[in-house]
Amino acid sequence: MGMFSDPSRNMSFIEFRNVSYDYTEYGTDDTEISAVRALTDVTLDVKEGDFVAVLGHNGSGKSTMIKHINAILFPTEGTVLLTGRDTKEADPVWEIRRDAGMIFQNPDNQIIGTSVEEDVAFGPENMGVPTEELEKRVEETLERVGLTAYRLRSPNQLSGGQKQRVAIAGLLAMRPKCILMDEATAMLDPEGRKEVLEIVHELNKTEGITVLLVTHNMEEAAGADRVIVMDKGRVVMTGTPKEIFSRTDELVGYGLTLPDATLLANELREAGLPIPAGILTEEELAEELSKIYRAQKDGASIEKKESRGQEDDIL
C-alpha cells in the first residue's frame, strides 16, 4: 500500500443508518390504501469478512432487511450503504447486486439453465463477461462448490443441497463481496444443510466473502461470528453467539430458543455440574464433561487410596 491508506479498510462494509421501511398496499384501483411498517429505525454495521446470522420470529423483518443490502428494496427513511455507496444512488444498480448476491429458500425457484454449467454462466454472461473469461469462471466456481462432475447434468436431477450449491456457484461467478442467504437451508435434508453451510463457511474463511445468513436454526447461528436478533421490525440484540445465547430469557421473549447443546449445558449446570457458560456445540459440551469426569475419577481414586491407607493403618 502506498502513502495513502486504503479508505475502504476503515469503512463499514454494510451500513444501515436509521432505516425504516413501509410496504405499500394498493387497492383494486391502484390507489394506495395503507402502509405496513416492516422496518423501524434499523441501525447496523457489518464489517467486511464477517459471518453474520440474522434471527427473529416470522414477520420480524429479516427478509425485508437483507433485501435492502442488494438493492431489491430501498429505505422509506434512512440510508443503506454498501462499501460506502448509498444503494439509492448506485448507478447502475446491478453493480450492487453483483457485489451482494442472494440465495433464497426454495432451491427449485433459482435454477434457470438447462445444464448446471449453463446455469452458473447465466449471471456473468448477462454482465457481459467475455466468453473465454466466462468459461474460466464457470470451471473455477464449479470446482469451488465441488460440482465439476455435474457440469453437464440437468439441474433437475440434483438434490436440494446440490441445487443450492449450483446457485452459490452462479453467484461466485459474478465475483461477489457478499452472499445473502435467506433461509437457504430451510428446505434441505441434514446432509444438504451441512454441505451448503460448509461451503459458505469456507468461502467466508478463505476468500473473505461477507455472509449474512437468515435462519430459524439456532445451531446454524451458533457457528456465526455475530448474531443479529430482530423483533417486530427492529434490531433488538447484536453480539457474538456466546453473548446472545447466554441471554436466554430475552431470546425466549422474542420467540426464539437456544442451540440444543446450550440448552443441555444449562440444564446440567442447574442440576449442579460445574459447566462454564457459553457452550454452543455438542463437542464443546462433551469436552467440558470429560474434564469433569476425569477430575471426578481422579478424585475418587485418591479417596480410594486414602481409605486403603487407613485400612493399612488399622491392619
Binding site: P259, D260, A261, L264, E282, E283, A286, L289, S290, Y293
Partner: peptide
C-alpha cells in the same frame, strides 16, 4: 442433537 452430545461423550470414554 441430544444423542450427538452423548455420542461425543462416549468417544471421550464416558
Amino acid at each position: 442433537e441430544p444423542a450427538i452430545a452423548l455420542r461425543a461423550m462416549k468417544e471421550r470414554g464416558i
